[in-house]
Nucleic acid binder design. Structure first.
Lengths: 230, 230
DNA sequence: TTTTGTGAAATGATTCACAGCC
DNA sequence: GGCTGTGAATCATTTCACAAAA
């Protein structure tokens, strides 16, 4: 309660870099993937129309999104693929390699460990951890499983900034607390629980059952509408 | 181009049932899970404040969300847990059992097949399919893997309405086309690709790499801000 | 007194439509 | 002539704040 009431970003110079809207941030990885795919086909240049369609969005939205990063297109021509890749990667902070620790090495954990998505760009699995002593020492995707007790050590030594939780629901909050305690401030949670975390920690949740239920809602609605109009 | 220009839901009676906003729909499964957890602890009644906190949202948002389904609370008291479960389940269409076909039985597919999240409530895996002939016949999570060629048959006979794609990226669009061809109109895609689908088909995408990149953005921003203020 | 349900206000996101530039 | 970048308009979502109900 010292200085002023500390609004968020209270002391950022003056509108230094306009904030990138959250909805835009969530789409940047999609654009990035589409651009990589285009690059592989040899395309060097792409219009907002073409890129938008590859990414499954409207072209106006795409242009507005990109405009938040800067002005990297050429009127009458389009965007240079490599240049856009560079700027989007930069905005996402993929210039540096982030170290990730994966906790919980069941089927899901193994799927994640084996998934190209990590090495892919910018991410590196620093360690696989599991609470089950019987599994410690097993090798998965070329890495030995280590004990959950080594968490602090791993986070410190490998400079881990992202934790991925792929444990059963019951264990997730405890693992989360330990991650936060070790200094991890970004967490990707695959366990079907809402994690309670202190301010400043960022959690993203991926939940199969949620997604199915959302699809269910829409199926249900379609079915109900069909009935009504019959 | 016969009748009028066919806006969406052009001929729904008159405001029959107010539309539930998409953002609300996406949160209903979270509330549902929190309610089930509360029920297990023996709670029979809960305030918007308590439920909101368990679900990780603000209480005003929760109340507004629930108000779209109806008026099921009691002022001065709160909500009856079981009653809310009933109404949310109803809104989500979980009254009926939806049949799901899972395509691609690698590590991820196995993780999904073994995940409680299906049987949990309302969903039933009708079949596991894989394109790899060598895997056909193997038993996973108590079910035999069948050939992808049986897709049409499975969808028809088991009345499948939801398809889950857990194949490598290269195969995803083809599998998607087959699902749509077989009549499936709701798809959950775990492959890292944007699927192209005709109107009326609903796709939800879950992508590890995307989520990591979004976290990366925020880490990057935190780091940059810290630097500036130093 | 407590806690819901909800108009009204504020904020955020998307879409439109076109001026500006190549 | 074609395509980007962006104000202005629209639409959606969140938050506020309080009257009404138990």
């Amino acid at each position: 309660m010292s200085a002023q009431a500390s609004g968020p970003a209270a002391d950022v110079p003056r509108a230094r870099r306009a904030e990138v809207p959250e909805a835009t941030v969530a789409r940047l990885p999609v654009y990035l993937r589409a651009l990589h795919a285009l690059a592989e086909t040899g395309r060097t240049t792409v219009s907002s129309e073409a890129l938008a369609s590859a990414a499954g969005v409207g072209s106006a939205k795409l242009r507005k999104d990109l405009s938040h990063l800067g002005s990297y297109g050429t009127r009458g021509v389009g965007y240079e693929v490599q240049e856009l890749v560079f700027h989007i990667s930069g905005a996402l902070g993929l210039g540096q390699r982030w170290s990730v620790v994966l906790v919980g090495v069941g089927h899901l954990g193994q799927a994640l460990a084996g998934y190209g998505g990590f090495d892919d760009r910018g991410f590196r699995i620093a360690a696989l951890l599991d609470a089950d002593a019987a599994r410690v020492g097993d090798v998965v995707a070329g890495m030995p499983i280590r004990s959950l007790d080594e968490l602090d050590e791993v986070v410190r030594e490998e400079d881990v900034s992202i934790g991925v939780i792929a444990t059963p629901a019951e264990a997730a909050q405890d693992v989360c607390d330990r991650l936060v305690g070790a200094g991890v401030r970004s967490i990707l949670n695959f366990a079907p629980t809402v994690l309670q975390v202190p301010d400043g920690v960022d959690v993203r949740r991926v939940d199969l059952s949620n997604e199915l239920q959302i699809l269910s809602f829409h199926e249900h609605r379609k079915a109900t509408l069909a009935e009504v109009s019959a």
